[in-house]
Design a protein around this nucleic acid. Structure first.
Length: 337
DNA sequence: AACGGGCTCAACCGCTCTATT
DNA sequence: AAATAGAGCGGTTGAGCCCGT
């Protein structure tokens, strides 16, 4: 399989940007032949173009073809590209066959200039689609510690006592353990939301990172309504309080709601070996963050100690089992790059 | 207004793959 | 089976644009 010399190496063959005249000549020639090109190599001579056949093919397939869709990529297209890339890798032409009117070159460019950076910003390796290892992850805990108002005080102080939570995953696990501590384990494994159930909570990069790094495929797979409310309670003390999802009440959770929440989150009757839930008084209205911190202080530190005593399990591949996941992520990541 | 840095994307380069001789 | 021709693919480049200083 020897490599044939390319006509592009011929002296005098024009290179560089195409002129309108050249475009018109190429289009008219192809249209005269019913949209079919017998041989790209012979086309320039037949059409009267001082171009390499390869250049003509590229110009036609990437720009002049009548079925090419111009304009920005939609969210659906973007999500599809990411999903296909995770499955196929840099098989741009194969990916392009799944998107009507998009060329491999256009998709490749869009990936390199937009999606790749977006994923990197979200601490996802654009090559492997895995979350970046802790050492490569921007220290979310450190960043938040540098701006303590960005977290409920109880978490900041607990993090400080442990030398900082240096990954978003640890952050999420810490939050999970906090919830466990508060609910006596009833809500174990369900604090960190799936992106689809918490997608509107990404009004800041920090929230973005926490959700992405700890979301689907991360610490826990689901995020129930009650846990969602609990999360809101915690976040209601943070300066970056995200907009509330439609299924939540918005604003602070009042004491009676906390009581209801606690009751709902309590271990079901008959469950064994579950510590009893703390009294509802441990949770106070969101208007009193100091009381929250004080009441939750001891169990949280205990939970963090437990966290440190066990190895942190890094999640594997991001789940790609449904388009909604990625769509939600992408829609929630509308921050400027 | 001028400059420089960053970004985008059309186009090129060089390799591989497949069909043909 | 080997050589050749041609097409296609993925990586890279660079001109032009945009935006901040």
């Amino acid at each position: 399989m020897g490599r044939s010399p390319c006509c592009c190496h011929d002296a005098g063959v024009k290179k560089g940007p195409w002129t309108e005249e050249e475009d018109r000549t190429l289009v008219e020639h192809i249209q005269r032949h019913g949209g079919h090109v017998g041989s790209w190599r012979n086309l320039p001579k037949a059409a009267g173009l001082n171009r390499c056949g390869k250049s003509c093919r590229l110009r036609w397939t990437n720009y002049l073809r009548p079925d090419i869709k111009r304009g920005n990529f939609t969210g659906d297209e973007e999500a599809l590209i990411i999903r296909l890339h995770a499955e196929l890798g840099n098989k741009w032409s194969t990916i392009a066959t799944h998107l009507d009117g998009r060329t491999d070159n256009e998709i490749k460019n869009y990936w390199n200039t937009h999606i790749r950076k977006k994923l990197l910003r979200m601490r996802i390796d654009p090559v492997t689609h895995q979350r970046l290892p802790p050492d490569d992850v921007l220290s979310l805990g450190g960043a938040l510690a540098a701006s303590p108002a960005g977290l409920p005080e109880v978490l900041v102080s607990a993090a400080a006592s442990l030398g900082g939570l240096n990954t978003a995953l640890m952050q999420a696990q810490a939050l999970q353990l906090l919830l466990q501590a508060i609910t006596g384990g009833a809500a174990a494994g369900s604090l960190v939301p799936s992106a689809s159930s918490f997608n509107s909570a990404s009004s800041s990069a920090a929230a973005d990172d926490a959700i992405l790094c700890a979301g689907r495929g991360g610490v826990v797979p689901s995020f129930g309504h009650q846990d969602h409310q609990m999360m809101n309670l915690l976040l209601s003390h943070a300066s970056y309080t995200p907009p509330r999802p439609a299924d939540c009440h918005g604003g602070n959770i009042i004491a009676s709601e906390v009581q209801q929440l606690m009751n709902a989150s309590a271990p079901v009757a008959g469950a064994t070996a579950e510590p009893p839930p703390p009294p509802a008084a441990a949770l106070v209205p969101a208007s009193c963050p100091e009381e929250v911190a004080s009441a939750a202080d001891r169990p949280v530190h205990q939970a963090f100690a437990d966290l440190l005593s066990e190895p942190i399990e890094m999640p594997g591949m991001c789940s790609l089992e449904d388009d909604l996941f990625w769509r939600d992520i992408l829609e929630s990541s509308s921050l400027p790059l």
